[in-house]
Amino acid sequence: MAYLELDRVAKQFGTQTVVDDFSLSVGKGEFISFLGPSGCGKTTTLQMIAGFLDPTRGAIRLEGKDLTAIHPAKRGLGIVFQSYALFPHMTASENVAFGLEMRGVPRAERAERVRAALAMVGLAGYEDRHPRRMSGGQQQRVALARALVIKPSVLLLDEPLSNLDAKLREEMQIELRQIQRTIGTTTILVTHDQNEAMSLSDRIVVMSQGKIEQIGTPQETYEKPASAFVSQFLGKTNDFAGTIDRTVSPTQLVAGSWRAPAPAGLGGPVTVSVRPERIGFGDAGLSAKILTRIFQGNHWLFQCDSECGPAIVIRQNDGTAQPGEGDAVRLTWRPEDMSVRARAGA
């Protein structure tokens, strides 16, 4: 049963529709990511759940109750802001205690819960520090502790890791996932970093221009992208123009000199998407010429010029000899490694 439900939610600023027809149901304890490019409406959607913005249309329900009728201060959600929005005049423990104070939690219990929350995010001993005297990662942890200590029904995270450097971000990702697993809080994370979304979430909501492109597990969205946008946004991909040839039997999918039995349900011009790491060099297939070969430690990256346009190939560095720059090669892949979509306008 859906725990948090967004039902055809839309938001307009003036005449500009920023979020449109957004429907999603989140299970209890689930970790969901909103993934999309800058300006696609992720923050706006999150702020509507938080109550800082009212939806123009649609309903938001938590455990079946209409959430939009409840004042943001009474929703009991935990929010971590991109800028952390810590209270600079309060110490770390005062920051964390604030939400409990507002709930009238008695002093002794408050102190204990604040201590436990700070310990959980690895900040034991930092109770009396002011936020401005803490590093970005530490501030981020205080913000997380402040949001979690009130035992929120849903935790909302708006790009909480984007201000951290790459190494710290990776550490915090692992930590965030562990904390979320331990306490089981339903979590929605906003991010434009596809790796972050993939490594953290149970399901990803891929958004573009205020609309949902796809909802699915990280693996589904990566391997079976529902649209060209999704396949391009989630990692590198090769799009080849192909056609389904119905004149032969069984029908064939043809892209240049690469051919395979056609998948059911499609006809005419199609786009064939293949991830670069799924393409191999073989004896038959798309003929191509290697333009550049880049060594990247654990793998090789080839940029090729194929008969269907530019192509990228990634090969594991498994010690075998690799073709060099200028070599003519044949690109090949297994039919199950590609996704085929009807090509519009062709």
Binding site: A50, F52, P72, A73, K74, R75, G76, L77, G78, I79, F81, Q82, S83, Y84, A85, L86, F87, F98, G99, M102, R103, R146, A147, I150
Partner: peptide, 23 residues
């Protein structure tokens, strides 16, 4: 001031008067 600071206080359960006085 952090532009989100009032929202942060509000999400933690603070009313308008408390936000002005405490934050």
């Amino acid at each position: 001031l952090d532009p989100q600071i009032e929202n942060a206080a509000m999400s933690l359960g603070a009313g308008p008067a408390t936000i002005i006085r405490r934050i």
